[in-house]
Computed example of a mutant assay.
Amino acid sequence: MGLRALALALLLAGPAAADPLRIATWDPGLSRDGPGLLLRDIMARDPQVVAAAQVIAHAAPDAILLTGLDWDLDNRALTAFAGLLAEQGHAMPHHHATQSNRGMATGVDLDGDGRAGQPRDAQGYGAFTGQAGLAVLSRLSIAGVTDHSATLWRDLPGHRMPGSPHADIQRLSSTAHWDVALDTPAGPLHLLALAATPPAFEDRNPARNHDEVTFWLTHLPDAPFAILGNLNVDPQDGDGDPATLAALAAVTQDPRPRGAWQPPQTGPNAGQRGDPALDTAEYDRAPGNLRLDYVLPAKGLSVLASGVVWPAPDDPLAEAVALASHRRLVWVDLDLK
Rank of each mutant, 00 (worst) to 15 (best):
S149E: 04
L152Q: 07
A91P: 14
D284H: 14
A86R: 15
Y125N: 13
G158N: 05
D183K: 14
R327A: 03
E282S: 11
Q253I: 15
G89N: 05
A246Y: 07
Q54A: 12
G36H: 06
L278C: 07
A312S: 09
P311C: 07
V145C: 09
L110F: 10
A63D: 02
A7H: 03
R76E: 13
Y294L: 00
W26L: 00
L231P: 06
S325D: 03
V308F: 04
A132K: 02
G34L: 08
A59P: 09
A18G: 11
R327V: 00
L296W: 04
I227E: 02
G89M: 07
D211E: 11
A80P: 04
P188T: 06
L278W: 00
G259T: 02
D74I: 04
L66K: 11
A298I: 03
D121H: 12
D275E: 07
L292M: 02
H159D: 12
H326R: 14
V303R: 10
L10C: 10
D241F: 02
A82C: 11
W331F: 03
P268E: 05
D46F: 11
R4Y: 11
H166S: 06
R154L: 07
G68N: 15
R327D: 09
A24G: 00
H210C: 01
A82T: 14
D239L: 12
R4D: 14
E87H: 08
H148F: 15
R120A: 15
D315H: 13
G107I: 13
D62K: 06
D168C: 00
Q236A: 13
G112D: 12
R4P: 14
G240H: 01
T184R: 00
P268L: 02
Q88G: 04
T146F: 01
V55F: 09
T175S: 10
P311G: 05
P255N: 04
D155T: 15
F81A: 02
G112Q: 12
A176H: 09
A59Q: 11
L192F: 07
A97N: 04
L191W: 12
L304H: 03
P165S: 12
G34S: 10
T280R: 01
L11S: 08
D211Q: 07
V233A: 00
W331M: 08
L192S: 00
R76L: 12
S325N: 01
R40Y: 12
L78M: 08
D254I: 02
A135E: 08
P255L: 02
W216N: 06
A207I: 04
